[in-house]
Every structure is written in structure tokens, then in C-alpha cells.
């Protein structure tokens, strides 16, 4: 087991948003979490990454409890978050964004290998290395956000709605590249999406999140053909 989340609760002020979430992922696995806007998907990833505090419950990663660790420490354990809306540093060059991704690493050799991996996976970034990230297109910024997270050499990658605001074609491209990283580098992933179709295609297993609670889970191929999911997410 790579990560195990048990009974996780989180709140903004007095308003509880996650009401006891249980999920788990194996090494190498790609998990997706689908759910409507406001279901709590972003909050779940942020709580795992240490940005939002858990009010109760546990997050166990590689047999260690990481619940409510500071986010700069969690990255060092090998979990990287690609935040919703990309949030690249617009006034910094693409290169500096990528170097910030590797901020925790000291080994030059490893950093170079990771940079090569990112630039091979996303060749568009290589052409734009010296450009400010703010000048990139939405799709390129998403590639940069993923690349920046890969630079941290994670064993678990958390992806928050990478398809947001992108054309279907661009979404396809990014998903297939990310999938390649998963299979070649055995980086496990938790993908959060409103785009249920993409997420179900992309992942091994899927959880359905509704109003801060998991209402269904299983093999993505099974979830895809579940009548309730079909009704809720595919209008049929």
C-alpha cells in the first residue's frame, strides 16, 4: 500500500467539507476521484498535500503518518501536487519554474535526469525554457505545472483537474503524456476530475465523491458502466 486515507475530515472554519473519506492507492496505481463542482475534490488533495488541515482521520503514506504535516515537508516524503488552475509562477521563466519544482533535491545528476524526462515528455517546454511562464498557452502551462511536480521526483503525483479550461484535444494530449510517465516511471497518481469520461479512461480505479463523502468506488471499467454513474455523469 502506497497511501491510505482513513476517516479523513476537513473543514473551512465551522463548515465541514470532507465527512470521513477512506481511499487507498497501491504503488504504480492510477486512481481517479470524480465528482461535481464543490464536492470536495480539491480539498481532499489539499489535505493530503498539507495545505488544508485535517480535523480528524489519518493519512498514512509509505507506512508513515503524514496527517497535518507542513506541505513543504510532505513534498520531501515524495508527494507532489499539481494544483487546480495550474498556478505556475507567471513572472518566472519556464526553466526557473522547473528548478523550483526540484527545490528539495540536492543531487545534480538526479535533477538533470528529471529535467530531461520532463523535456522529453513535453517537448513544447524545451522551446519555451527562457520564456516567462505567464506567456504560455493554457495547455503549455498545464504541462509546466505537471513538469514542475515531476521535478520533485515524486512517488505519488496528485493532479487537480488538469483538463480545466483546455480543449478536448489538448486534454487528450496531456493525459496520454501523463499516462506515459506513470507507466514508464511507476509514479502513482491520484487524479481529480469533473471530466468523468477522461478520468475513467485514464485510471485503474475510481472513487465517486459527492458532498464530501465517497459514494462509490471500484475498477474504472466497472464504474464506467454503473447505471447511477451513467445517469449522473453522462446524462444517460
Amino acid at each position: 500500500m502506497l497511501i491510505k486515507v482513513c476517516g479523513l475530515r476537513a473543514a473551512y472554519g465551522a463548515v465541514e467539507v470532507l465527512h470521513g473519506i477512506d481511499i487507498e492507492a497501491d504503488r504504480g496505481e492510477v486512481l481517479s476521484i470524480i465528482g461535481a463542482n464543490g464536492a470536495g475534490k480539491t480539498t481532499l488533495l489539499k489535505t493530503i498535500a498539507g495545505v488544508v488541515r485535517a480535523t480528524s482521520g489519518e493519512i498514512i503514506y509509505e507506512e508513515k503518518k503524514i496527517t497535518n504535516e507542513r506541505s513543504d515537508r510532505i513534498v520531501r516524503t515524495g508527494i507532489a501536487l499539481v494544483p487546480e488552475g495550474r498556478r505556475v509562477f507567471p513572472d518566472l521563466t519556464v526553466r526557473d519554474n522547473l528548478r523550483l519544482g526540484a527545490y528539495t533535491l540536492r543531487n545534480r545528476r538526479l535533477k538533470k535526469d528529471l529535467l530531461d524526462l520532463v523535456l522529453e515528455t513535453f517537448p513544447k517546454l524545451r522551446e519555451r525554457l527562457w520564456q516567462h511562464a505567464g506567456t504560455l498557452s493554457g495547455g503549455e502551462q498545464q504541462m509546466l505545472a505537471v513538469g514542475r511536480a515531476i521535478m520533485a521526483n515524486p512517488r505519488l503525483l496528485l493532479l487537480d483537474e488538469p483538463s480545466m479550461g483546455l480543449s478536448p484535444l489538448m486534454t487528450q494530449e496531456i493525459f496520454s503524456l501523463v499516462r506515459k510517465i506513470n507507466s514508464e516511471k511507476a509514479i502513482s497518481m491520484i487524479l481529480v476530475e469533473q471530466n468523468a469520461h477522461m478520468a475513467l479512461e485514464f485510471s485503474h480505479r475510481t472513487y465517486v465523491l459527492e458532498n464530501g463523502a465517497i459514494v462509490m468506488s471500484g475498477e474504472s471499467s466497472k464504474v464506467k458502466s454503473d447505471p447511477a454513474v451513467l445517469a449522473a455523469y453522462f446524462g444517460g
Partner: peptide, 8 residues
């Protein structure tokens, strides 16, 4: 927030 996610 994102800076902290970089490990800073």
C-alpha cells in the same frame, strides 16, 4: 501556498 508545495 504553491511555494510551500515546492518544498520551500
Amino acid at each position: 501556498e504553491v511555494a510551500a508545495l515546492m518544498g520551500i
